[in-house]
Simulated assay, not measured.
Amino acid sequence: MSLKLFDVVPDFTQASTIGEFPFYPWAGRDWVVLFSHPRDFTPVCTTELAAVARLKPEFDRRGVKVVGLSVDPVASHHAWANDILLSQGVELNFPLIADEDRRVSQLLDLIHPNASDTVTVRTVLVIDPARRVRLTLTYPASTGRNLAELLRTIDSLKLTDDHKVATPADWAQGDDVIILPSVGEGEARRLFGAWQTHTPYLRTVPQPVAAE
């Protein structure tokens, strides 16, 4: 299958660094970031896993669980985690799925034959509490992922789920936001009070407070 935005991610159970990993029970009612790696002991992915481990308090603060996936076995994952600790100075503090049989990779469409017919591409899935895909990012092997952009996008998704707004280009937490064009003037006045009109379809207001 090929997962598209708002598709429901199917459930699965697979081995991982924390033992058997049943996706739905583990995810609970939280947001999830699932990111795949082509194999263990790769240099770019080593830096990415360390970066995610350092930022885990930021994911926790947002109510987001993180999980990695690689096609090597659990024993290899644990050895890789030790390498990450020695080279990057941070412990792996989230589960890493051992997709040795490629079952989850095939289920989530993480193998792209034109790149490689055996290993996963470096994909990020942001999944909401209803198990729906809300963001997909796929990176080339040579380019490390931008974790700040991932956090920024999650902030935008959570804010725009709670309020009838969208976020403009290069938006960051605390910046002005856009009132949805579908919100009429009366509803906009009730929800936001006042706003700045740039064009009939572009109205901006200070960022509302996101629900916790």
Rank of each mutant, 00 (worst) to 15 (best):
M1Y: 11
S2W: 10
S2K: 03
K4I: 06
V9I: 07
P10M: 11
P10H: 01
D11T: 07
D11W: 10
F12G: 11
T13G: 05
T13L: 00
A15V: 14
I18S: 10
G19H: 09
F21V: 01
F21Y: 01
P22V: 02
F23H: 00
P25L: 02
W26H: 05
A27D: 05
G28H: 06
W31G: 05
V32P: 04
V32Q: 02
L34C: 03
L34D: 00
R39Y: 12
D40S: 14
D40A: 07
D40W: 08
C45D: 04
C45R: 09
T46I: 05
T47M: 09
A50D: 07
A51M: 13
A53F: 02
R54L: 03
R54F: 01
L55D: 06
K56V: 00
K56D: 00
E58V: 08
R61A: 00
R62A: 08
V64L: 07
G68N: 08
L69S: 04
S70E: 03
V74G: 01
V74C: 04
S76G: 07
S76A: 08
S76W: 03
H77A: 05
A79Q: 13
A81W: 08
I84M: 06
L85W: 04
L86K: 15
S87L: 15
G89K: 12
E91C: 08
L92E: 06
P95I: 05
L96D: 09
I97D: 01
D99R: 11
R103M: 00
V104K: 01
Q106A: 00
Q106H: 03
D109S: 00
L110A: 08
L110Y: 04
L110I: 05
I111F: 05
P113N: 14
N114Y: 12
N114H: 15
N114L: 14
A115K: 09
S116R: 13
T120N: 04
R122K: 12
V126T: 11
D128G: 12
P129H: 06
A130S: 00
A130I: 05
R131F: 12
V133Q: 02
V133H: 01
V133Y: 00
R134A: 04
L135I: 10
L137E: 03
Y139W: 11
A141K: 06
T143L: 11
G144E: 14
R145F: 10
R145C: 14
R145V: 13
N146D: 15
N146Y: 03
L147F: 10
L147V: 07
L147Y: 12
E149Y: 15
L150V: 07
L150T: 15
I154M: 05
D155M: 01
S156I: 05
L157F: 15
L157M: 13
K158S: 14
D161A: 12
D162L: 09
K164D: 15
K164N: 15
A166M: 13
P168A: 11
P168D: 10
A169M: 06
D170P: 02
Q173R: 11
G174L: 04
V177C: 13
I178L: 09
I178H: 04
V183C: 12
V183L: 13
G184C: 03
E185R: 02
G186P: 12
G186C: 11
A188Q: 09
A188V: 13
A188H: 06
R189L: 15
R189W: 15
R190V: 12
F192W: 12
T197H: 14
T197R: 14
H198F: 13
H198C: 15
T199S: 07
P200W: 12
P200R: 13
Y201L: 05
L202R: 09
T204M: 03
A210H: 01
E212S: 08
